[in-house]
């Protein structure tokens, strides 16, 4: 979503993005003239008149599970966004009984918090696991 019109979105997709992504952008390119939606989401920069790089993960109940906002010159890490969605999906599927520790990615161990684990996480999770 940006403040550009749907006509500019079409031009950008058809003339440039379709040369990067075969078949063009697969998802909807939303237009937010005047930044009204961006303002509600807290990412509209009134001084510049544009929206900053805000990214919101919204679950099937319509609840915001996470967000990230960057200033314009730095692009996002799509793989990290996907990892976060996978983690939220694991937590949701466990109905909140499992948690994904720092550095978790699919295939790695989750934690099942319980009273006995208090003060004993060090036995289950090592610092290196945040980086591997």
């Amino acid at each position: 979503m940006s403040i550009d019109s749907i006509y500019v979105h079409k031009m950008w997709n058809d003339n440039e993005l379709s040369k990067m992504v075969k078949g063009g952008i697969p998802f909807a390119m939303l237009s937010d003239a005047g930044g009204k939606v961006g303002e509600v989401y807290g990412i509209y920069d009134e001084d510049a008149g544009v929206e900053t790089r805000g990214r919101f993960i919204i679950d099937p109940d319509g609840v915001i599970q996470g967000y990230e906002v960057l200033t314009p010159p730095v692009g996002r890490n799509v793989a990290e966004s996907i990892r976060q969605i996978q983690a939220f999906q694991v937590v949701r599927a466990s109905k909140g009984t499992e948690a994904t520790p720092s550095g978790w990615k699919p295939g790695k161990k989750t934690l099942k918090p319980n009273p006995d684990m208090v003060g004993n996480v060090w036995k289950e999770w090592k610092t290196e696991m945040a980086f591997d």
Partner: peptide, 9 residues
């Protein structure tokens, strides 16, 4: 699941 992304333009 929805990913909502804003960008400057």
């Amino acid at each position: 699941w929805v990913v909502l992304c804003f960008y400057p333009g």
